[in-house]
Design a protein around this nucleic acid. Structure first.
Lengths: 152, 152
DNA sequence: CCAATTAGTCAATACGGTTGACTATATGGT
DNA sequence: ACCATATAGTCAACCGTATTGACTAATTGG
């Protein structure tokens, strides 16, 4: 722990941190009845929030509407969302979270907060707060946090 | 910037930071004669380091050897690596960086260091050092930093 | 010397992304 | 009121990168 990693390792550090966090999250979600949920599903659920349309989800995720439609199919199959038509504009598919979907999001939030709490316990609030502030600053003016385009 | 994001947004922050950094990197790599290089290629080049075999690369990346073999094909097509057979064990394919591959890795390192330098300029060395230390601690004891398995 | 191990490839499949072409619905100018 | 245009969403074809299972070739060791 003495020496810091060189600056050119920062992307690996960010990726590994993300991966580790997501792995823990999915492990614990599976233990709580939400098996089969993948990273993309959680991202999409977060992006859907209180509800939106296919096109709007595509915009929020930064992907094509065809890709968003496929994600919507997966989420529907997992009983996390349901779709309905908007009577005022019958072209639209309104997407909204199911009870199970809302429970999954709430559980995700609890688990993530709990994981970060373990970081706080071992490294201190100051270090974690500073890290979050720094990462938030680095992302200022970038695309939305839920943008997953080209992330492979 | 006043309020910090809640702890359950940390994964989004990590992913967006990684994505932003990689996007910048690839944009600048393309400007310097290394177009067509994708995130997976840079990861693999880093993992290959001084050279290894297909199976060893698979282990370092945390993927199947079939997947590693495909990555090796891509890197070979990009003239970043070359393979040869080991005369002492003719089952093995030795992988080593080409001159161009080494130049790409060096250029990546320079660009990444330069990007992080802009962070240091605007946020201060203390904030960046603390962030790197924190992320490194969070990853202690986890799989190798070059592990890309299931990152989708 | 032959059985077991190890390195790597081939083939089929899955998943999530893309573009292009399409249908259905809504909107707005003349 | 009508028709041109714009918008919401789907279908089909394809790409890239992963997977597993079955395989060949080379090495090792009892």
């Amino acid at each position: 722990m003495s020496d810091s990693l060189p600056d050119n390792m920062v992307p690996f550090l960010l990726m590994a941190s993300f991966r580790g966090l997501i792995d823990d999250l999915h492990h614990r979600l599976a233990e709580n009845g939400f098996g089969g949920v993948r990273a993309i599903h959680g991202m999409a659920m977060q992006a859907i929030g209180a509800g939106c349309t296919t096109t709007e989800l595509a915009r929020r995720l930064g992907v094509s509407k065809q890709a968003a439609a496929k994600t919507i199919q997966s989420l529907t199959a997992l009983d996390l969302i349901a779709t309905s038509t908007n009577p005022h504009d019958r072209r639209e598919r309104r997407i909204s979270s199911t009870v199970r979907g809302a429970a999954m999001l709430a559980e995700s939030g609890r688990i993530l907060t709990d994981i970060v709490r373990t970081w706080r316990d071992s490294l201190g609030d100051d270090a974690i707060d500073e890290t979050i502030r720094t990462l938030a600053s680095v992302n200022h003016g970038r695309r939305s946090l839920t943008d997953v385009s080209d992330w492979t």
